[in-house]
Amino acid sequence: MRFAETVTFGGSGLNRAAELRGDEQAQAALLARGRVLPVWRGKPLVQAGGLGWVTCDSMVLHHAGVRVFLGFDDDQPCFAADITDWQPEAGAEAVQAGFLDSSQQHHPALPDSFAFAELRATMLGLTAREAELAATAKAILQWHRSHGFCAVCGAASAPAMAGWQRSCPTCGAQHFPRTDPVVIMLVTHGNRALLGRSPGWPEGMYSCLAGFVEPGETVEAAVRREVFEEAGIRLGAVRYLSSQPWPFPASLMLGCAAEAVSDAITLDPNEIEHALWVTREDMVSVMAGTHPLIKPARKGAIAHFLIHNWLADRLD
């Protein structure tokens, strides 16, 4: 697919320098001259539309957890640190409330121009490199918070390899960050595309159908299974188009195009609240935000990216 890696969080050419992760002396030297992105409850620090970096001795990091080495932005070593244990004076009650948390939290050790903000609300203002760094930081720090104990023996594990591994001191097991593959499908039938909405989404919001890849399943099989389970649509040809890291909390979205061989929709109400076929002409007004009933997929999400490129005839 042309423009495949221009999707938000797509590859920016970040040098992750994995060969340095096991060198503790090198890591200490890099941290001393590098910069750190604090992340609070999944929210990266931002400033003036970009990421908000601090030095390793900043008071913001006083109660921080593991420093994860993200790599080099040009020659600048970049790290991320989880400061979720910090308790702001106000604003915390809004976190994770509703579909999108629009609240921002300000740390007393930083100027008011710095704030912790929901990544989905700020991602479109980031450069490609900033977006990749923020997505990596959010995903791996969430993994550390949710995988603090060994899955083999249950003992507390410890960060290793500059934050890219957890080691169990009791049984010696090694654990690595997880990424969950998710297929997301632009399903077409002639001049129409299939859209659906999940229960609890904002009124009028629709997107492409999507679902997790199951063990022992190919990407193509997952596409066919999910579309049939959710909408009762049978598919013919399926092809991969593009991928997107989606750190909410740790998915890799595998964008695919699929041709439907049936068009009668039979919903699974446990998965989909509503689904419908939308003509190319109507989709233009949907994406422009002028359709009377349907709101577009979120800008920055791969669903929006796929639909936009379908309308522009750039899916080959």
Rank of each mutant, 00 (worst) to 15 (best):
P169Y: 03
E130M: 01
A173S: 08
T127N: 01
L195A: 07
E130S: 02
A193Y: 00
P169R: 06
H147G: 15
H144L: 15
C171S: 11
F149V: 09
R166H: 15
C168E: 00
E118G: 10
A139F: 06
G148A: 10
K138D: 04
A193L: 10
L194Y: 09
A115N: 02
E130G: 02
L141Y: 04
E118M: 09
A162T: 03
D112A: 15
M123Q: 07
A109T: 13
P108C: 02
P108K: 05
T122D: 07
A115M: 03
A131S: 15
G163E: 08
H189S: 13
G154Y: 03
A162R: 03
P177L: 05
L124K: 00
Q174Y: 06
L141Q: 05
V152N: 13
L119S: 00
A151G: 11
A173W: 01
A115H: 05
A115V: 04
A160M: 05
L119M: 04
A162F: 04
A137H: 02
G148K: 06
L194H: 10
R145T: 15
H175C: 00
A156T: 10
F176L: 07
I184G: 07
K138S: 04
A151W: 05
A139K: 13
L186M: 12
V183A: 14
L133K: 01
F114H: 02
W164T: 12
S157C: 14
P111C: 06
H144Q: 14
P159V: 11
T122E: 15
A109V: 11
T136N: 04
A151N: 08
D112M: 07
L133H: 01
A173F: 00
S113C: 13
I140Y: 02
S157G: 14
A151D: 10
M123R: 10
P159G: 09
R129Y: 06
G190C: 13
L141R: 05
C171H: 11
V152C: 09
L124T: 05
T188G: 08
C153Q: 06
P169S: 06
T127L: 01
